[in-house]
């Protein structure tokens, strides 16, 4: 058993969670180092929220172990809860409670809360402080829920889809705040299905699909920074053997990955000549390109390669 002070912020080992027949989390391993922003990225239903709720002590692991700040979220829940901040995806406030009243209430449950007005100001909640929760906009509710997670000055915050429903300005404010949390020594674990959010914020990204971690790394490692990609989508399915013939036309320095029967990905040092080769090949195969994009390899490409599916 590791020393509690030096243990990682989160350590999930071989976690299994099932709901009836459905396996939501399937032998998942996850490690979050202290002082980092770690993104758990995956499509809806991938098992992100279930994993987080197990870390927050809401659910007991059916198999495997979960340690948060070196503590068992079930058996040592009372010791753990004051040290973590939780932003839930849905609900979390009385419908008739005023925004600042709710924030003040949660502040009072803590020993050394943040200054409520300063926090509300920072999150742009000053104007709607007296508005009942049910009449706040989706973005305002999100910002209030984030404030509720932070007001107790936790060591570790779990934020579940923090920017869902926010306008671009509020998203930027939220990202800045999450970066400041890291700078001030708070560990941040966030789930998201926004590639750009994970790419911009996270030190480390864990991509989850169907209850398992399918890839982990820094954004640069995951996108193999600087590698170019060409994404080709055609209007009707490729003829049989088409990807192999494209690979042959392109040569060995580029790699063709089939994404679906109408799309494929070409990875490697691609340039405008490559585009010309691909166009010629399309004509030869009698397929019509719907889109043909040359660009940097993104997390979206990584996810497509790994799962054969898009994220959203």
């Amino acid at each position: 058993m590791p020393d509690a002070a030096s243990s990682p912020a989160v350590e999930v080992t071989r976690l299994v969670m099932r709901y009836g027949e459905k396996t939501a989390v399937d032998h998942l391993d996850l490690r979050v180092e202290r002082g980092t922003i770690t993104a758990v990225l995956g499509p809806n239903g991938a098992g992100k929220t279930t994993t987080l709720e197990t870390c927050e002590g809401y659910r007991a692991p059916q198999q495997g172990t979960v340690r948060v700040l070196g503590l068992d979220p079930q058996r040592e829940r009372r010791a753990l809860l004051p040290r973590i901040g939780v932003m839930l995806q849905d609900g979390g406030a009385w419908s008739g409670v005023r925004a600042l009243e709710m924030l003040r209430h949660v502040a009072r449950l803590h020993a050394h809360p943040l200054d409520v007005d300063a926090l509300a100001d920072r999150l742009g909640l000053g104007d709607c402080g007296r508005t009942p929760y049910r009449r706040l906009s989706g973005g305002q509710q999100q910002r209030l829920k984030l404030a509720l997670a932070l007001v107790g000055r936790p060591e570790l915050v779990f934020v579940d889809e923090p920017t869902a429903g926010m306008d671009p300005a509020a998203r930027r404010t939220t990202w800045e705040l999450l970066r400041q949390l890291r700078a001030d020594g708070v560990t941040v674990v966030l789930t998201t299905h926004h590639m750009d959010e994970a790419e911009r914020l996270a030190d480390l990204i864990h991509i989850i699909d169907r209850g398992r971690v399918i890839a982990s790394g820094t954004p640069l490692q995951l996108t193999r920074g600087g590698t170019s990609t060409i994404r080709l989508v055609v209007t009707k399915p490729f003829p049989a053997g088409a990807p192999d013939s494209l690979q042959a036309s392109l040569g060995g320095h580029l790699e063709v990955t089939t994404i679906s029967d109408v799309s494929l990905l070409i990875t490697g040092p691609a340039d405008s000549t490559t585009l010309a080769v691909v166009s010629a090949w399309c004509e030869e195969q009698r397929v019509l390109p719907e889109s043909l994009n040359l660009g940097q390899r993104t997390l979206e490409d990584v996810f497509l390669e790994l799962t054969g599916r898009g994220l959203s």
Partner: peptide, 10 residues
Amino acid sequence: LDLSPRPGGA
């Protein structure tokens, strides 16, 4: 806003 951790229940 100083966000440095200072956790604890009232």
